[in-house]
Structure formats: structure tokens, C-alpha cells
Amino acid sequence: MIDTINPTAKTVGILLGSIALGLTFDWRVNLAVSLLGLLFLITSSRTEPARLLKVALPLAVISLSYFFTGWLFSSEGAQFATSAGDLTLPTGRDLVNGLNLSSRIFAFAMLGISYGMTTDSGELIASLIQQARMPMKMGYAILTAVNLTALIKTEHEQSRLALQVRNIPVKPLDSKPLFTMMIRMVRWSERLSLAMESKGFSENRVMQLQMQVRTKDVLFAGGLPAFIMVLGFVLI
């Protein structure tokens, strides 16, 4: 369903949709947006259930934390964030406030997850270069970094080990391996740029992957934020 949407149009739609969601303050809108995000995810062939579950755990913790904060530490101004109908609920205004806050964070994350998990990295960069006028150098630099992530993680581990074998203690957020890594990244950036340019890399590079903007992409970019606005300000 969402896999075939042009990545730039998808970015615009999700960004504007998120801003529209930020302007609404009702748990029912948040619930509808969360369900929409879930629909995007279950209809996508790119969704990996194991990865989705891995992301869901911290999301559940964050969402629950906002619920408790909204419930136990509700502001007087919270009444502006709930509709008049909510005030009559027997569960109390603070409980609804907690529900509003937790579902809000959950809805933002569902939109984000449905974007992140259904977008191919190569297509996103190609689309940003072709449709959003991102500099070719920036696009390929980002792709290079993404593809080198596993190697950078290994190098970081080795930096920590190198210090430990010399009997130098390394704490979880220690700056010593970070310092080593930054020196390596300066060197890598110099060597990689030399290697890429010697292979003929330039802004005039022709991309094999050509991304197109079709009517359905435009409809998605405008339709998603419009749907959330209508839901938040007209229907609910």
C-alpha cells in the first residue's frame, strides 16, 4: 500500500501529517492515526515482524511513561487539551490527560515506524537527489555512512578492546574510544573521497535508479495531513 509511494512524497506527507497531528489534542485522533500507521505496516511487504517487535518495546515504555506523567502530573492547562465530552467521563480529567499524552506519542511513533520500515534506503536517497534537489555528494555520503555502519561499530568495539588490553578502564560513555573513532573518521573521509573522485564521482553523475512522482504520490503527500486535520478539527 505505502511501499510504492515516492519516498520524497512520503516524507512530505508524513512530515506534514505529524505537524497536523501535533495541532490536535484528542486521544481518538491519536488512536485513528496509530491504526492508520498499523495498516501501512501490515500491508507493506518490507515490514519485518521481528524488527517491529524490537521497536515496539521502547515505544511501549515511552508511551506508558507519558501516560503516568499526564495522569499524575496534569497541569491546570490540560483542560484546554481535552474536549468538553471528556470532562464528563467518570475516569477523571487527569486520566484522560494521561491517555491523550501517551496516545499522542504512540501515534507520532506509529507514523514514524510506518515511514522508516516501508522506505528503501537507496530509493529514498535517489528520490531526495532527484525530487528534493539534495546535493549528489550529500546523498552518496549518507549512503556510504549507512553501508559502513556495521564496520564502524566493529571499529568502535576494537577501539574499546585496544584500551582494555592496555589495562585502561573504558566506561559505557567514555570519550577515549570516541576520540580514536573521530581520528579514524577523519582519515576515512579523506581516503573515501579520494577513492570516489578517482573513480569519476561528480555532481553530473547519472543515476540508474530513476524515481517518478505520480498522481497517487501527490495525493498521499496532501491527503494524509488533510485526513488528520479533518479528523481532528471537523469529525471529532
Binding site: 546535493p135 555528494k137 550529500m138 552518496y140 555520503a141 549518507i142 556510504t144 555512512a145 549507512v146 559502513l148 555502519t149 564502524i152 568502535h156 570516541l178 573513532m181 573521530m182 573518521m185 577523519v186 576515512w188 573521509s189 579523506e190 573515501l192 573521497s193 570516489m196 573522485e197 564521482f201
Partner: peptide
């Protein structure tokens, strides 16, 4: 330059 963009992206990963 390309080197600048690469440095920014690699530092971002670190």
C-alpha cells in the same frame, strides 16, 4: 566538498 559530506555522515554514525 565530498570529503566534508563524508566526514559529517561518518561522524553522525559514530
Amino acid at each position: 566538498s565530498l570529503r566534508d559530506y563524508l566526514l559529517m555522515s561518518l561522524i553522525a554514525v559514530v
